[in-house]
Write a protein that binds this DNA or RNA. Structure first.
Length: 230
DNA sequence: GCGACAG
DNA sequence: ATCTTGTCGC
C-alpha cells in the first residue's frame, strides 16, 4: 500500500508536540467504520539491545493481516530499524510509527482495519498511536492497549464481552473490554474512522480464545523472531 | 510538590 | 518494551 513517513519527523519533544497539535484535528471520529471488513491487520513492535552508546535502539515491526471471517493469516510483512526518539508517555508513537509504516507499506493491498498495540483517543491530547497511524494511512484504526493510560472505569463484569466506559473528566475516551472470562481486560479506543461500538465488536471478534486479538498475537511473535534474526 | 505514566 | 526459572492450574 502507498504511504510515506513524513520526512519532517521530530527529533525532540517540542517538535513532536507540535506535530500532534497539527494532526489531531484530522482524526475522523464519525465512523461508523467497516461493519464487515474483509481483512483485519495487527501491528506490533519489539525492541532489542541498545547500540551506539545506548543512543539507538534496534527495533523490529510486524504487521499480520487476517481474513476477518476465519482469522487465518493472508499476508504479513516486517521491517527493522533504529529508534532515536526517547520513550515519553504521550509521545509513544514517535518511536514506533516509522518502522511500523515501513512494514505496512510492503503490503500489496491495504487492510480494511488496523488494530494497533497502544491507545487511540485514550491519550492526554486525544492523539495516541492508533489515531496517528490512522491519520497517516487514511485507514480505519483502533487502539487496543494492554494497560490503561488515562481514564478510569468501574463496574466491569467478569464475562467475555462485558465492558465499562473509560472516562477522563467529562469525556468517554474508550472502553475497558473483557475479551475472556475472568481475564484482565484490554483498553479499546477509537483511532481513526471508526466508532467505539464497531471497534469493540471487531476486537472481540478477533479475540475468540485469548485476551489479545489473534492478529496482535501473531504480529508480536513475528517481530520478536525477526529481531532475533536481525 | 509528589507520584503516575501506552510500549 | 526488556531483564528472567520455575511453577500453579486447566
Amino acid at each position: 500500500m502507498r504511504i510515506d513517513v513524513p520526512h519532517d519527523w521530530p527529533q525532540d519533544e517540542a517538535a513532536a508536540l507540535r506535530i500532534q497539535d497539527g494532526l489531531r484535528g484530522l482524526v475522523d471520529l464519525e465512523g461508523p467504520g467497516p461493519r464487515e471488513p474483509l481483512t483485519v491487520a495487527g501491528l506490533d513492535v519489539a525492541y532489542g539491545p541498545d547500540s551506539q552508546g545506548g543512543t539507538v535502539e534496534r527495533v523490529a515491526a510486524a504487521v499480520v493481516v487476517l481474513d476477518a471471517k476465519t482469522l487465518v493469516p493472508v499476508a504479513m510483512e516486517t521491517a527493522v530499524g533504529d529508534v532515536s526518539f526517547p520513550y515519553v508517555p504521550g509521545l509513544f508513537a514517535f518511536r514506533e510509527l516509522p518502522t511500523l509504516i515501513a512494514a505496512l507499506r510492503k503490503l500489496p493491498v491495504a487492510p480494511d482495519l488496523l488494530l494497533c498495540d497502544g491507545q487511540g483517543l485514550a491519550h492526554p491530547r486525544r492523539f495516541g498511536l492508533a489515531c496517528h497511524l490512522g491519520v497517516l494511512t487514511g485507514l480505519p484504526a483502533v487502539g487496543v492497549a494492554k494497560n490503561p493510560f488515562i481514564g478510569t472505569y468501574e463496574g466491569l463484569g467478569e464475562e467475555r464481552g462485558d465492558w465499562a466506559p473509560l472516562v477522563d473528566g467529562d469525556e468517554t475516551v474508550g472502553r475497558a473490554l473483557r475479551t475472556q472470562k475472568g481475564v484482565k481486560p484490554v483498553y479499546v479506543s477509537t483511532g481513526h474512522g471508526i466508532d467505539l461500538d464497531t471497534a469493540c465488536h471487531h476486537v472481540l471478534a478477533t479475540a475468540p480464545k485469548y485476551r489479545l486479538p489473534e492478529s496482535t498475537r501473531l504480529a508480536d511473535r513475528l517481530c520478536r523472531d525477526v529481531l532475533r534474526a536481525a
